[in-house]
């Protein structure tokens, strides 16, 4: 239960609620730019992380959780990098080489040249 009287805890909860609602509303609005969406996303994640690690919410997290939580942004950054490299690598490896298409085009070019010359085109 939240305390009824104003205090650090209530303000923080209310603040994050407002922040979240604002972010959601803005996401719904089409006018928000991609940049703004990214900034909002990062701000929400960042403030949640900061609130949890500094204990501003007053939650007593078990020590093991805190140990994981503290370096979490670094882990996320590294895994995002791995994901990016992996995805690009996979897509490069599976990129179709359209050799048939190239061969087909070459033979059609010969055909087209002959037909156009027959119709009187001077190349």
């Amino acid at each position: 239960m939240l305390p009824l009287v104003g205090g650090r805890r209530l303000n923080l909860v209310r603040f994050s609620f407002l922040l979240l609602r604002g972010a959601l509303l803005s996401f719904l609005a089409v006018i928000m730019t991609k940049l703004a969406q990214w900034l909002w996303g990062l701000a929400i994640l960042g403030s949640t992380w900061a609130a949890l690690t500094t204990g501003a919410l007053g939650l007593e997290l078990p020590l093991s959780c805190q140990e994981v939580l503290w370096p979490l942004p670094a882990y996320l950054l590294v895994s995002a990098g791995c994901y990016a490299l992996g995805t690009v690598g996979y897509r490069v490896a599976t990129f179709h080489d359209c050799e048939d298409a190239a061969r087909e085009l070459q033979s059609q070019i010969q055909e087209a040249r002959a037909d156009l010359a027959r119709r009187g085109l001077r190349f």
Binding site: F95, H96, D97
Partner: peptide, 17 residues
Amino acid sequence: RYKGNGGVYGWDLKRKI
């Protein structure tokens, strides 16, 4: 070029990356 049977011809690895 990036879906299904789509693709490119004439690009080397570096250019693909």
